[in-house]
Design a protein around this nucleic acid. Structure first.
Length: 801
DNA sequence: GTAGGCTTGCGGCAA
DNA sequence: GCAAGCCTAC
């Protein structure tokens, strides 16, 4: 909450207006734009759809457009609503506008993600939707715990109906803008025997009592707010003269409704709504995105102008050819043809067949080292995978090679256990009634407050109708708790009182919205970062990790430090907490030169000189699961994902396909992806590895393409690898226990033949060492270990010595 | 109440 | 292959 909007409505000397000449014919910022880009910038009035292909300067158009609106004084910064999906995109946009117009960006309070703007709107009008303006925003973890409680209370078996699943379903409904009563009959029966509306409603009620929202609510409640309070909506109609949306193809129904309400200030043909996107890069269908939104834009806003940006400034023509040829297989698209602006046709796209994922990683590693010797920076190379488990092979290989790499989009910083715990402490200091935070940390670090004690607390809180903290305060005065627990809780409460007091000494917050802050008047006795440090130390939380001997403990302590340090940037504790609940990304150390490894999804919007696309196999890519769930639409989405991958490359593109892949712990022989057949022969070079194993081309039956050369099993190869492949293929068909080199791979193998071991036999166990078998029941062995004593272990855990 | 061992299940992942 | 969650034994 950096800027204060009202202040910016007043003209400010020397800010925006004086930056760019006085109405000179072609301002600087228009120079260097091509015709279509310029058109998109200058068409400020009326609905506009900018179809921006990959690498066509989409962000540049958006930012220049905002600069233009500001420069030509069509609107003040506070009168432009500009929404993105990710914080990263919002931040980048802010930076780039800043570079164009100078200090004026500071005054763009309505530039942000859908959710942060939604939260901002809700805080202003919280009372109209039954919340207080200091409501907390729950993340997925809190949500799950809350649902677990509800399911338990409703006597629903959590094993049969997992909370996670319900959370996912709820997410879907909220993405579609559905309230409990709107859930379709078909969906209702999908969980807990039709008790869905009831549970969903209970969940919503519970959120309200907790003075909390989840992410979905940030939009859903806005929609409710606007529908029920036309005067409030009208206020925003007056305020927002221009609305811009980035990555429109990713918008879901709720976001669409939200935007439509806000754009309704004028009749549809005159709405100043500009959406930018690429239907070919819509890859978030599984998250509720509706490609239909962008495909339908012209119908929704009759008279909308459509501008296509088709000149690509990123990739060589061979790369573009490959990408365009592939995406042309999709039926539902608006259709664009990218033209390269890069002179040379460049290298051919190389497609390589390898034996398995390890060889794939070896190959990629070698190539990277070779490029590096040629002088390429590691930063200019990336490996884009379909599924995150593919990353492991590359990481392992790169570690042995000593090749610097970074994984992008691993477990997010704020989702880490230690960070969440620390945040729970801070949330509780800031708001003692935050029950979810309380539950999280009562017994972390271990204080001897187990389930039974907690149950007493819950009961008391429910009886009194108060929060857990309040309930504890009364409980410790009674005899209900055991003396030990009572003392512990009393001490804990005293600590929180103490911390809360220290927090009070830190300048007040939140009142920012309407009151002008008097800078420099309040003196800080304790900065909130210091306070956080004290809380973590005094609560014993830091100590808990210091005593932890496990490998991760050190990293966790690092993360805690990083968390505390990052607090320095914020004016207040609650400001910090708000930021954290909405923001996911941590600053990735861009400093070192390193190869990037990430999923295709997280690669959207990025570009690299050299891109490796491993794992182009049926089942993995396109993902079998997507095909099963969403059929043809799913296939098209996978194809768009392939398109995104291909278009990330500027100069060099390497696609690979493995003949064997380990899936769910089983080796499976793989069929080359149908997407390989969709690459144009003229732009592609096929390379076989000629490795010791295999080398029989792609084989498979991907539908009569060039890659469908030979039947892989109709060959004379007699190498060990080949034998294995054959053994596997037949064992898969027979559905018997799967073996590789004699190792049992499949589980629960108890086929009546008994064990391959005998009683009395000496065996070896990875953890327990050597021992003698005492008893055999199916695949379970009772073993007397020489060091570890008697244990029952699964047969697959031991080996012959 | 906790630790360790086994079972199970498995996609992409913003806010 | 691996992690999260469950169950059992202390």
């Amino acid at each position: 909450m950096a800027a204060e909007p009202q202040r910016l409505d007043r003209p400010q000397a020397g800010s925006i207006t004086s930056q760019f000449g006085r109405g000179a014919a072609a301002p600087d910022y228009l120079k260097g734009l091509n015709e279509e880009q310029r058109d998109a910038v200058l068409t400020t009035e009326g609905p506009l759809l900018v179809l921006a292909g990959a690498g066509t300067g989409k962000t540049r158009v958006l930012t220049t457009r905002i600069a233009h609106i500001l420069n030509s004084k069509k609107a003040w910064p506070s009168e432009i609503l500009s929404v993105t999906f990710t914080n990263k995109a919002a931040r980048e946009m802010k930076e780039r506008i800043g570079a164009l117009v100078g200090a004026g960006v500071e005054g763009m309070p309505w530039l942000g993600t859908f959710h942060s703007i939604g939260a901002r709107l809700l805080r202003r009008h919280a009372e109209l939707v039954g919340l207080r303006s200091d409501f907390t925003i729950l993340d997925t973890d809190d949500q799950i715990r809350l649902i677990k409680q509800l399911l338990e209370a409703a006597n629903i078996d959590e094993k049969r109906w997992p909370a996670r699943q319900f959370a996912g379903m709820m997410d879907n409904w909220k993405n579609r803008g559905q309230l409990p009563t709107d859930v379709s009959m078909a969906d209702r029966s999908a969980f807990a025997n039709g008790r869905i509306p009831e549970l969903y409603q209970q969940y919503q009620d519970r959120l309200k009592t907790l003075n909390a929202t989840d992410f979905g609510d940030l939009l859903l409640l806005c929609i409710k707010l606007f529908r029920e309070n036309p005067d409030v909506l009208a206020e925003y109609h007056r305020r927002f003269k221009y609305i811009l949306v980035d990555e429109y193809q990713d918008s879901n129904v709720a976001q669409y409704l939200w935007l439509r309400l806000l754009a309704q200030g004028k009749p549809a043909p005159e709405a100043n709504l500009c959406v930018v996107g690429d239907d070919d890069q819509s890859i978030y269908g599984w998250r509720g995105a509706e490609v239909d939104n962008i495909l339908r834009f012209e119908k929704d806003f009759p008279g909308a102008k459509v501008i296509r940006l088709e000149r690509n400034y990123r990739s060589t023509s061979n790369i573009l050819k490959a990408a365009s040829h592939l995406i042309a297989n999709n039926e539902s698209r608006l259709g664009k043809t990218l033209q390269t602006d890069v002179g040379e046709p460049g290298e051919l796209v190389m497609v390589t067949s390898v034996w398995d994922s390890d060889e794939e990683a070896r190959q990629v590693g070698e190539e990277i080292e070779q490029f590096q010797r040629q002088g390429d920076a590691l930063n200019s190379m990336a490996i884009l995978v379909r599924a995150s488990h593919q990353m492991r092979a590359f990481e392992e290989r790169f570690i042995t090679l000593g090749l610097n790499y970074r994984v992008i989009g691993g477990p997010r910083f704020y989702e880490r256990k230690e960070v969440r715990d620390a945040l729970a402490y801070l949330r509780l200091v800031s708001n003692p009634n935050d029950d979810l935070a309380f539950e999280r940390i009562v017994n972390t670090p271990k204080r001897g407050l187990g389930d039974s004690t907690l149950q007493i607390l819950y009961d008391a809180a429910r009886r009194q109708g108060t929060s857990l903290t309040t309930a504890v305060r009364t409980l410790v005065e009674t005899e209900e708790l055991k003396p030990k627990q009572r003392t512990t809780l009393r001490q804990l409460m005293d600590q929180f009182d103490d911390w809360a007091q220290r927090a009070q000494a830190v300048p007040p917050e939140d009142a920012v919205e309407t009151e002008e802050l008097a800078p420099g008047i309040v003196r800080r006795h304790t900065s909130h970062a210091d306070l956080a440090r004290q809380v973590l130390d005094e609560s014993g939380y830091t100590e808990m990790w210091q005593n932890d001997k496990s490998a991760e403990a050190e990293g966790r302590l690092e993360n805690l430090k990083e968390l505390v340090n990052s607090m320095e940037e914020f004016d207040s504790l609650s400001g910090f907490l708000e930021h954290v609940s909405l923001v996911m990304d941590r600053d990735t150390g861009e400093a070192d030169d390193a190869v990037s490894i990430m999923t295709l999804h997280s690669a959207k919007g990025l570009e690299f000189e050299t891109v490796f696309l491993p794992g182009w196999e049926e089942g993995l890519f396109p993902s079998q699961r997507t095909l099963d769930e969403s059929g043809r639409a799913g296939l098209e989405e996978e194809r768009r994902l392939a398109y995104v991958g291909l278009t990330r490359a500027r100069k060099r593109l390497r696609v690979s396909v493995a003949q064997n892949r380990l899936t769910h712990g089983l080796w499976q022989s793989a069929i080359p992806s149908r997407f390989l057949d969709e690459l144009p022969a003229a732009a592609v070079e096929v390379k076989d590895t000629g490795s010791a194993y295999g080398g029989y081309g792609y084989g498979g039956r991907s539908g009569g393409g060039r890659f469908d050369t030979r039947d892989p099993f109709d060959s004379l190869y007699e190498t060990p690898g080949w034998q294995r492949a054959r053994a596997q293929a037949s064992s898969r068909k027979s559905a018997g226990p799967v073996t590789i080199d004699g190792d049992l791979v499949a589980r629960s193998v108890d086929d009546g033949r008994g064990s391959k071991y005998d009683v009395g036999e000496r065996v070896f166990h990875l953890k327990f060492g050597y021992g003698r078998i005492e008893q055999i029941e199916g695949n379970k062995l009772t073993i007397e270990f020489e060091k570890a004593g008697r244990k029952k272990v699964l047969e697959s855990f031991v080996q012959k010595p």
